[in-house]
Design a protein around this nucleic acid. Sequence first.
DNA 1: CTGTCAAAGACTGTATACAGTATCCAGAAC
DNA 2: GTTCTGGATACTGTATACAGTCTTTGACAG
Lengths: 221, 221
Amino acid sequence: MALRSISTQRRRLADEVYDQLVTAIMDRDIGPDDRLVQEKLAAEMEISRTPVREALLRLEKEGVLNVANSGGFRLAKISEEEILELYQARAAIEGQAARILAARQDPEELEALRAFIIKAETLENPTTRDYFVANRSIHRQFMDAAGNRFLLEMFDMIWGRAMAFHLFAAIEHTDISKSLGDHIALVDVLATGDRAQALEQFTAHIQDGFDLHIDGIRRSQ
Amino acid sequence: MALRSISTQRRRLADEVYDQLVTAIMDRDIGPDDRLVQEKLAAEMEISRTPVREALLRLEKEGVLNVANSGGFRLAKISEEEILELYQARAAIEGQAARILAARQDPEELEALRAFIIKAETLENPTTRDYFVANRSIHRQFMDAAGNRFLLEMFDMIWGRAMAFHLFAAIEHTDISKSLGDHIALVDVLATGDRAQALEQFTAHIQDGFDLHIDGIRRSQ
DNA sequence: CTGTCAAAGACTGTATACAGTATCCAGAAC
DNA sequence: GTTCTGGATACTGTATACAGTCTTTGACAG
């Protein structure tokens, strides 16, 4: 008998702090004007500075936070330029996953993807955030299926940063049914086995997202 | 006029430790059997445990180190499977950069790349490591030219990990002149402006690297 | 009113101390 | 001889203490 270890990885306080900060940022509890100071956060959370410091430095290395010149950390700003770069990076990562999946062309796998998409997009009265979460989970599922841990890691990095930057708050909640058609079409192109075409279509899909995004930003200004 | 800040970022002791560990790994001063213990390293470097801990945790998060079950950190092992994934990720990142460069098709930029390649490959009695470094710097130059900071970040992540894993030690020192032709040909395809073709050729170039690599590993066993 | 200098304050980085947990070993029990 | 069980050991995570640096502010000189 081989029992799995109960907790594969010890949970550190720093991880807890990290998670709390991330959700706080996503929930807009932390805004661009807030200054995050180690001592204050530690006091607030009733722990010592050490784990707080660790979490803050991690977020800084990930590009989510910047050191403020007067000490403390601030939310990093993102420019329109950087948004474009983020989408370009997405296209690179997810396009490659598409190539891999198209080359493999595993019918079972593709069927599972279809099922996943339909399930994920069955939302009642979805908010913008619901839509975002569903969209992300669908795209992540493609990545997961491709089975390359580095690509997956980069995917999470990109989307994590996007969330941190409230990047999708500007997106109008688009028609789900249209999007569903899009995602299913992505599976269809994988089924053809044409790698170049798969890449192209994924890239185009992401490009659509970008256009929508920029449009949303422009209109919200 | 926009003057750059003198010291963009304060240098922390942890960074120093990190760098030392990375070079030690690359120089094989740290092998797969060594156990890295915070206290011992700290004592050896005559500093406290805090910055050492920080550096070790960073390397762990980057996948270079693993926590050993008996405490301390060990070099992470990499499988042949993971090497493939690493190359796939490379293809994704660098292929996208190629698309960007081909789309831009800036003659000056391409000329600069050519010059860089020729300069970088002018090596006398190069060792395997010299070759590796030159190759890396050439590829990085392409990425740099593409001008996407996320792609560049991922590039560094991938190559950093590759170095940490001694991934290129197995590669026989191949004929530089052949490789030079290859790299110049990469610039040529960018000059045509054909994005799909550019992607294809970069991917093929990286595939060649992979084949060589696997071959090297197989032969060294 | 403006510019300069000094002192205070705020925060960080580093060191050290403390507590908890997992591992390993020795000796007892069978 | 093998297996179990304490206890010592080793190492980490967290807290706290200390020292240095950067910013800001206030007073004074021009």
